[in-house]
Simulated scan of single mutants.
Amino acid sequence: MAILVFLILHWYFSLFFQSVFHHRYAAHNMFTMSKFWERIFYIGCFLTQGSSYISAYAYGLMHRLHHVHTDKPEDPHSPHNDPNPFLMMWTTRNSYINIHVGNTLVENKYKKDLPEWESFDKIAHNWVVRVLWILIYILIYAWLATAWWQWLFLPITIIMGSFQGMAVNWWAHKFGYENFKMSNTSKNILPFDFIFWGEAYHNNHHKYPTTPNNARRWFEWDMGFQSMRLLQLFRIIKIKRLAV
Results as ranks from 00 to 15, higher is better:
V68W: 09
Y177D: 07
W90F: 09
N179D: 14
F36T: 13
F180G: 11
H23C: 08
P115R: 10
N204K: 05
W197I: 00
N179C: 10
S52E: 02
F175C: 08
W37I: 08
E199C: 03
N188I: 06
M30D: 01
S55C: 10
L9M: 12
A124N: 05
V5E: 07
W90E: 01
L65H: 01
N203G: 11
D113S: 10
F196D: 00
L231C: 10
S14K: 06
L230T: 02
H80C: 00
F36K: 15
E199I: 05
F194E: 00
Q226C: 14
L144D: 02
T32G: 15
Q18C: 03
V101P: 02
S52L: 07
D222T: 03
N126Y: 08
K109A: 11
K111H: 06
W133D: 05
S19T: 08
I189K: 10
E118Q: 03
K112W: 04
F17L: 03
I195V: 07
W148G: 08
G44N: 04
Q232G: 12
H77S: 09
W171V: 13
D121E: 09
I156P: 13
H173W: 00
A2E: 08
E118W: 09
W127D: 14
F16T: 07
F16Q: 09
H202Q: 15
I158Y: 02
R235Q: 14
Y141D: 07
D82A: 15
D82K: 15
H22I: 02
V129E: 09
H66D: 10
P76F: 07
L139P: 13
K174V: 09
M88W: 05
Y59W: 15
W170D: 06
W133Y: 14
A2F: 03
H69K: 01
G44Q: 01
F192T: 01
W148D: 09
W143P: 10
I140V: 15
K111I: 14
K238Q: 09
N204H: 07
Y177G: 07
I54F: 00
M88V: 04
K187S: 12
P209I: 04
K122W: 07
K181C: 01
M1A: 08
A145Y: 05
Y110T: 10
I237E: 03
H202A: 14
D121I: 02
F225C: 13
L233A: 14
G224W: 02
F86A: 03
Q164E: 08
G50K: 12
L9G: 15
E38P: 06
L132S: 04
S186G: 08
W221F: 15
R24F: 07
L139E: 15
M88T: 12
A142M: 14
W133M: 13
D222H: 08
E199N: 00
W218M: 02
V131H: 04
T146K: 15
V106M: 04
F6S: 09
V244I: 04
M223D: 00
A243L: 02
H100T: 00
A58P: 01
I236S: 05
F175S: 04
H28Y: 09
W221G: 05
K207E: 07
R93C: 08
A200Y: 00
V168Q: 06
I40S: 03
F180L: 06
I239M: 03
Y110N: 14
K109P: 09
F194I: 10
K240W: 01
H22A: 13
L132P: 01
E118Y: 05
S34Y: 02
G161P: 05
V129Q: 09
H202S: 07
